[in-house]
Amino acid sequence: MTTLDSAYDHSRLDGVRRKRMLAFLVDFTCICILWLIACVVVGFLGIITLGLAWLLYGAVFPIVAVLYSGISISNRSATPGMRAAGLIFRSETGEPPSFIQGAAHVILFYVTVTFLTPLILVISLFNSRKRLLHDMLIGVTVENA
């Protein structure tokens, strides 16, 4: 790991923590708008299926969040919020991020925030690449574009 860190261009990490907070706000807003649209669709499907589709309401937000992050990260190496903040998503291997990495990133983010809220942020203060806990778990770095 030290060879990767010593060869890494740390100037690409200036202001990343602050930009990630802005990116989260933009992405969360986009996900909530898509979630509301999906809830309306599920509501109409519930009418057509005599209430059966309404059982999907509990799964709508996670599905929207996973699809939003997975598709946007795999297609453009960043979510719309990350692009607005000038950030990109890089895997440790140098390969473009996959849908699975984008989906795992958002799933691990919400799981770790739920159970370890302060720890995911504190960890970024003590590692050289300013990565959060869920970044380390899937082997990615978020850096300036």
Rank of each mutant, 00 (worst) to 15 (best):
T2G: 07
T3R: 14
L4Y: 06
D5W: 01
D5A: 01
Y8H: 01
S11P: 04
S11K: 10
L13M: 05
L13K: 08
D14Y: 00
G15M: 07
V16R: 01
R17L: 03
R17W: 08
R17N: 09
R18K: 10
R18E: 11
L25Q: 10
L25K: 06
L25E: 11
L25R: 05
L25I: 12
V26S: 01
F28Q: 12
C30P: 02
C30S: 07
I31A: 07
I31C: 08
I31M: 04
C32M: 14
C32I: 05
I33P: 06
A38V: 15
A38D: 05
C39N: 12
C39A: 14
V41R: 03
V41N: 08
G43P: 01
F44K: 12
F44I: 09
F44A: 14
L45E: 10
G46T: 04
G46P: 06
G46I: 11
I47P: 11
T49W: 09
T49D: 07
T49G: 03
L52N: 04
A53G: 07
W54Q: 03
L55M: 12
L55K: 13
L56P: 03
G58V: 09
A59F: 15
V60Q: 01
P62V: 13
V64H: 01
V66P: 02
Y68M: 12
S69N: 14
G70K: 00
G70R: 00
I71W: 03
S72E: 13
I73R: 00
S74C: 07
R76Y: 04
R76M: 10
R76G: 07
S77V: 05
S77R: 12
A78L: 15
A78E: 07
P80A: 10
G81F: 05
G81I: 09
M82P: 04
R83E: 15
R83K: 14
A84S: 12
A84L: 14
A84T: 08
A85L: 13
A85D: 15
L87Y: 03
I88N: 08
F89N: 04
R90G: 00
R90H: 10
R90T: 10
S91H: 06
S91A: 11
E92K: 12
E92T: 05
T93E: 13
G94M: 14
G94I: 15
P97V: 11
F99L: 11
F99T: 02
F99V: 08
I100C: 11
I100P: 02
Q101F: 07
G102M: 09
A104Q: 08
V106A: 04
L108H: 04
F109W: 00
F109E: 06
F109R: 11
Y110F: 15
V113S: 04
T114R: 09
T114P: 05
F115E: 02
L116R: 00
L116G: 01
T117R: 13
T117E: 15
T117S: 14
P118M: 10
L119E: 14
I120D: 08
V122D: 03
L125N: 05
F126W: 15
F126M: 07
S128I: 12
K130M: 01
K130E: 00
R131H: 09
L132T: 09
L132P: 00
L133Y: 02
H134I: 14
D135S: 08
I138L: 08
T141Y: 13
N144D: 06
N144H: 11
N144A: 08
A145M: 13
A145P: 06
A145G: 08
